[in-house]
């Protein structure tokens, strides 16, 4: 018997969609361990999202302290580890966002917890399925420590539905904080009005074959027509055509939208690792032998220069006819 401590990220007064996927996993794990889900919100202003979290979890613990203005693994991990002890956790989990990936292994070390990263499926209380080798294989692992740490792959777990009755919110003190001298000096975010890459229903990605950042404008026009997020291959982000946080793949973001456009992307395994789970994949590439065509549901062998203006026109026509 044990509870499942679910670290939940929030923005303002609501949980992020990544947290809702984590809560779905947490419910499955709690059922397997015969315990409850304890949602944990840490950060300056966390209190504002407590009520939203209580819609999804029986117990919510809020650690809201002005000193926690910036996320830092050095301060968050000890808090999470302490709460795991106080709440009888047998599983500590977060979504595999960059924050989750930074935090959970550090907390695991403090708890002597074995860890399963990027879990795609709960097989039993202590066994987990997870992708390895850039998603070329799925490995089932058993973790045999009293406390198990996990990060979960957001695209593999649907957003949790609200519970019938709201849970209970309690606050916990941050306790003594020691950032070990670490400070966040600044954050450069590439703000955009488009949906977040990992949440979007449609993703439009471009690769090296787009040649310049300027040329991405036509892809962005397509994206905005579809309410899509923009993505890119590593070759395009490395060349500085587009921001690094657009990168989709093994080492970029993992996406699984309803519809994925891969334009002028060859389809290297590391790219496929990040988008193979998409429902429908469209590839536009001038090279008929490009490996992307092996995973694409629909492929068109042509240049983007020819294809994109026509595609935009055709989609406008469809929209107009509705």
């Amino acid at each position: 018997m044990g509870n499942v401590l679910a670290f939940c990220e929030f923005g303002g007064s609501t949980l992020k969609s990544s947290a809702l996927s984590n809560l779905t996993f947490a419910r499955e794990a709690a059922a397997a361990h015969g315990g409850d889900v304890v949602a944990v919100l840490i950060g300056a202003g966390a209190g504002a999202a407590g009520a939203d979290a209580a819609r999804y979890a029986k117990q919510v613990v809020v650690v809201d302290d002005a000193a926690l203005e910036h996320y830092l693994a050095e301060t968050y991990a000890p808090i999470l580890a302490r709460l795991a002890g106080e709440h009888g956790a047998s599983v500590v989990t977060a979504t595999a966002t960059t924050t989750g990936k930074d935090l959970i292994p550090r907390a695991a070390a403090l708890l002597d917890a074995g860890m399963a990263s990027d879990v795609s499926k709960l097989a039993s209380a202590t066994t987990f399925v997870r992708p390895i080798l850039a998603g070329n294989a799925a490995s089932t692992i058993e973790v045999s420590t009293p406390i198990i740490a996990t990060t979960i792959r957001q695209t593999e777990f649907a957003a949790a539905e609200p519970l019938g009755a709201a849970g209970e919110v309690v606050t916990a003190a941050a306790g003594e904080l020691d950032a070990l001298g670490a400070t966040v000096e600044r954050i450069e975010s590439s703000k955009s009005d488009r949906p977040e890459l990992t949440d979007a229903k449609v993703v439009v990605s471009g690769g090296r074959g787009m040649k310049t950042g300027e040329n991405f404008k036509v892809l962005e026009e397509l994206a905005d027509l579809l309410g899509a997020a923009m993505g890119a291959s590593r070759a395009a982000t490395d060349a500085g055509m587009v921001p690094a946080d657009w990168q989709v793949g093994q080492t970029g973001k993992i996406v699984a939208p309803e519809l994925y456009f891969a334009v002028a992307i060859s389809g290297a395994i590391q790219h496929l690792a990040g988008m193979k789970g998409s429902k429908t994949i469209v590839a536009i590439n001038k090279d008929p032998e490009a490996p992307i065509f092996q995973v694409a549901d629909y492929g068109v062998v042509t240049t983007w220069e020819k294809a994109l203006p026509e595609l935009i026109e055709e989609i406008k026509k469809v929209k107009a006819s509705r």
Partner: peptide, 29 residues
């Protein structure tokens, strides 16, 4: 403390199709 219980290849995606032109693509989508 971690033991591998098995490894599987992920399910292959069903084979896709090449389409001739953009209007056909949009129609199929």
């Amino acid at each position: 403390v971690i033991a591998e219980k098995g490894v599987e290849l992920p399910p292959a995606r069903p084979p896709g199709q090449k389409v001739d032109d953009i209007p056909t693509l949009v129609q199929k989508l």
